[in-house]
Design a protein around this nucleic acid. Sequence first.
DNA 1: TTTATTTCGGATAATATTATCCTATTTGTA
DNA 2: TACAAATAGGATAATATTATCCGAAATAAA
Lengths: 144, 144
Amino acid sequence: MFSKACEYGIKAAIFIAINSFENRRVSPKEISEEIDSPQAFTAKILQALVRHNVVKSVRGAHGGFEIDKDKIAKTKLSQIVYAIDGDSIYKGCGLGLHTCDENRPCPVHNKFKVVREELRAMLENTSLEQLALDIKSGVTFLKL
Amino acid sequence: MFSKACEYGIKAAIFIAINSFENRRVSPKEISEEIDSPQAFTAKILQALVRHNVVKSVRGAHGGFEIDKDKIAKTKLSQIVYAIDGDSIYKGCGLGLHTCDENRPCPVHNKFKVVREELRAMLENTSLEQLALDIKSGVTFLKL
DNA sequence: TTTATTTCGGATAATATTATCCTATTTGTA
DNA sequence: TACAAATAGGATAATATTATCCGAAATAAA
Ligand code: FES
Ligand code: FES
C-alpha cells in the first residue's frame, strides 16, 4: 500500500510529534531506534519531510527534528504521504492506465474509486495529534 | 496499490475471459498487445495464474490461454490478486509492523483496517464476468 | 576562534521488481 | 515420424527501491 519510505516517514513524524509536545528535539538515531528503521535511510526521508514543511530541522549542537506544537493538530496524514509517495495513491488508476479518467475508465474504475476515495478521506481526516496521543496513552505502538 | 505484475495479471485475465466466452484461446503476444504490457513478462505472470488455477493453458499447436466458461462468473478479483501479490494487501499492517494485531495495533490500525476491509470486500465481490462484460459492451477499456 | 554536535547531501551498494532472451518441452498435424 | 506451433522455464539485464557511508555545512558552547 505505502512504500517503506512512507511507512518510516509516518512513524517518524508521530515520534517527533510526541517529543515536540514536551519541547524535545530528536535525532535520526533516536527516531530510527524508536520506530525500528534503518538510520541513514530514515534521515533521507526526514529531509524530504523538512523540504515539504511537515517537520522542522535545527542544525548544529542541540539541534534535531521538531514540529511546532500548534501545527501538530493541523498536520494530516495525507500531507506526509504526499511528501513521500506523491499523489498516485489518491489519483492513480488501479490498473495503471496513464490517467484515471471517467470518460475512459479501466475495468475496475467504478469499484476502485470508492475504496481510493475512502483512503483519501481517511488520510485527510487523520491528524498527527490523534496518532501521537494514542501512542502516549499506550493504546497503539510504533514497532514490533 | 497493486504491483505492475498484478495490474497486468488482472487485465490479462479479463482479456482471456472475453475470448473464452467465444471459445477462443489467446497467446501471450495477443494478450500483451491488447493490454499494453511487455510480452515476456506477461507470459511469466500467466504462468503464475496457471499455477494458481485461475487460467488454464494448453501447450502445443492451437494452444493458448483460456478460462472454463462456467468458471468466469465464479472467479473473483481477489483470487487473481492473491495469486500474484499474495495476501499482504488484505492482512498486512499499513505501517509495516510484523503482524497486524488487534492487541498491539499500530497508530493507523483502526482507521486503516476499515479501508483495507473495504478493499478486500470489493475484490472478493467483483467477478471476472462483470469486468469482462463491461469491456465487451464498451463502457470500460484495457489500455491507454 | 576552536571544537563538538548535528543535519544536509552526494556517492555508492544491496535488494526487489520489472523486463528480455533463449532453449526445452508439449502437442497437433502433415 | 517429422515438423510446426505454442507454453514453460532458466538465465540474464535494466530499473526502482531500499539502505549505507562519508564528508560538507551549520550552529552552539567552551
Ligand atoms: S481508470 Fe482505472 S481506476 Fe479510474
Ligand atoms: S497493526 Fe497496523 S494496520 Fe493493524
